Amino acid sequence: MDLFKHDNRSRQMVELREKIESGENNFFPVFSPLGLNELMKWNAEVTFKQVSSEAIGTKNIQRISEKEIGDKLKTLLKSWNELSYEEKTKQSTNYKKEGLRRLFPDFFLNISFLYSHGLRGLTEVDIIKFDYSTSDFWKKTSDYSYLQIGATDIMHILFAKHLGCEYIASKDSDFKRASEFIKEDTGIEVLYGYDQILKKI
């Protein structure tokens, strides 16, 4: 791991991954389908930027907004759906169809790699019998919105409470900002950043 020896964050990331994958830790780390939604969004965006930067240059891609990327990904998805099974699986002499056949699958998560490597050491949990009412908003989550916590992160908090989790681990500063409120409302302790996570794990 000499590549990372001068980068403390990378070193901590590698150390955390090794502990999670080995199972030699004090946690039972889990992820929900909501986490997969976020991972899918990130993967599609990063892949689009990588492919596009090779074609038209990095500077041009930096000016494209998230919504514009979504529009372009929609166009790609519609083009993919218009291909026949053979066009999706066999080499084509049509350079547009062949380019789409080769590149498009990269925009989606590789399930076999995801579960054998990327999420190794984590347990997938389903969210069942979960309710969230208007009353819950006023009583439980309105403070989070006031503190500028995004809806997705609020759902992570609610799911963690529903599952009976003791901790939420994140590098998102939103969780750090709301940590005392989360602890008071749910009993869940926020572990912010690699330092806190590694101390607990």
Rank of each mutant, 00 (worst) to 15 (best):
N26L: 09
F107A: 07
E66C: 04
T75I: 15
S170Q: 06
H117A: 12
D126S: 15
N26W: 03
M40H: 13
S116V: 02
E98T: 05
V190D: 01
K78V: 15
E45P: 00
G121T: 07
E68C: 01
W80Q: 09
S92L: 12
L114T: 05
E180K: 15
V46C: 00
S116H: 05
L147S: 06
L100T: 05
N94S: 12
L198S: 03
A44R: 15
G35Y: 10
E38K: 14
I188V: 01
D172W: 08
F137Y: 15
Q50V: 01
N110F: 06
Q196P: 00
K200W: 00
V51K: 05
A44M: 14
E124W: 11
K96D: 10
K59G: 00
F48G: 02
K78A: 12
R63Y: 04
N26I: 03
Y85R: 15
D153H: 06
D106R: 13
T93R: 10
G99C: 05
E166T: 08
F28W: 10
T141L: 03
I20Q: 04
D143M: 06
F28K: 13
T93A: 10
T58A: 13
F27R: 08
E18D: 11
V125R: 13
F27G: 05
H162G: 04
Y167R: 05
K49V: 00
I182E: 00
S170P: 08
I201Y: 01
K78L: 14
E45F: 08
K183V: 01
M155G: 00
G164W: 06
F4I: 11
H6P: 01
E38G: 12
E180G: 03
S22E: 07
E66H: 10
K97S: 03
Q12C: 10
W138Q: 04
D153Q: 04
S145R: 12
G164A: 07
S173R: 11
S92C: 10
F137G: 02
K97A: 02
S135M: 08
N60T: 04
T134C: 08
L119G: 05
R177P: 06
I61N: 01
M40L: 13
G187W: 06
D126F: 12
E18R: 10
L34G: 15
K97M: 07
F28Y: 14
V190E: 02
K5Q: 13
E86A: 14
W138R: 07
I61S: 01
F113K: 14
R9A: 08
N60K: 12
M40F: 11
F48D: 02
L77G: 08
E24S: 14
S135L: 10
L158G: 01
D126M: 12
R9L: 11
T186E: 04
K96V: 06
